[in-house]
Design a protein around this nucleic acid. Structure first.
Lengths: 121, 121, 121
DNA sequence: ACCGTTCTAGAATATTCGAAC
DNA sequence: TGTTCGAATATTCTAGAACGG
């Protein structure tokens, strides 16, 4: 199993921040789902105003969401229609599988158009 | 009176809702700018949780923003960067010019009109 | 003299330069924020053309910025959005806490340690 | 077909970083 | 360690797309 050769250094800053955030933050604001497979924001308003400024350079839920999508997290529709909880998940973002974090990659930005670019072609 | 050829029926439902909302809502949550040219949301959190459900079928600021953009409103950066106020404007959305409201049109849905489009039909 | 265990020698040259610069420079060009926690460049153009050559071996604001980032200073968005002031901060860079300066360390160059790396040798 | 709601992505700018020298 | 330049990442605002009424 398990991503040998995948050290912490390879985890992107954003992913590392979210993982840390979930470990240290007030359990009333955000946390892992019971199975440890989903990120649950229990209180988006407090998350934006209190947590975002501590871990990022902004204080909006939208900016947080934008980066989650950039890293291919997907929103999970909550069962309770009126719930204010916001749930996100990524197959390689799991509470007990820190070793998988390096697999989470940011989507490539606007594709390189250089005619001789060996990477993007 | 009234902008001949421009009756209320011609004002889109969303634009009418926003105009009404600004007339009746708590002045601490939202209102017109002093010059009557801008929509100011003083408290986005309360706006989303209290006002949105009354005027729309959702309770998120993002959904409100999405429609504003659809109707070509644009966000106005506030001078104070750390301000929580959110400001939007549209050249034909003015407090004293209700007659201009019919001019505000929703962007055409990017509907595919190709007669043989297998996706959109 | 000299705070035992934390002599001037332990403060990196760049950090020392910035600290000195703020003490001696024209108050119209740069200085401390009122609370003494932030570095404020009031006039980036004059800072680059007049101060940089005196304290460093260049005359560009970007080079100054590059080193600030290298030492983990972060840019702070100025309150006034249209302000030309540029603000940086580092938790251990404070006007009244010269004793903390040695704690400011340059980021480890991400030197490649792979024994067989043909690029870095 | 049009409009509204939701989730995701594009685009422009701002900020930070990698790497060669 | 410092300087330079190009690239990657972050933040903001707007738009695309799928779906439902």
């Amino acid at each position: 199993m398990a991503a040998e050769g995948a050290t912490d250094d390879e985890v992107s800053g954003f992913v590392r921040s979210v993982y840390t955030l979930l470990r240290v933050c007030d359990a009333e604001i955000a946390g892992w789902s019971h199975d440890g497979l989903q990120v649950v924001i229990f209180d988006p308003a407090r998350f934006a105003s209190e947590l975002c400024p501590k871990f990022f350079r902004h204080r909006t839920f939208q900016s947080f969401t934008r980066l989650l999508n950039m890293y291919q997290f997907h929103r999970v529709p909550s069962a309770q229609r009126d719930s204010k909880h916001v749930v996100f998940a990524h197959p390689n973002f799991q509470r007990t599988r820190e070793d998988l974090l390096p697999l989470i990659q940011r989507k490539s930005s606007s594709a390189c158009r250089a005619p001789d670019c060996g990477v993007c072609q």
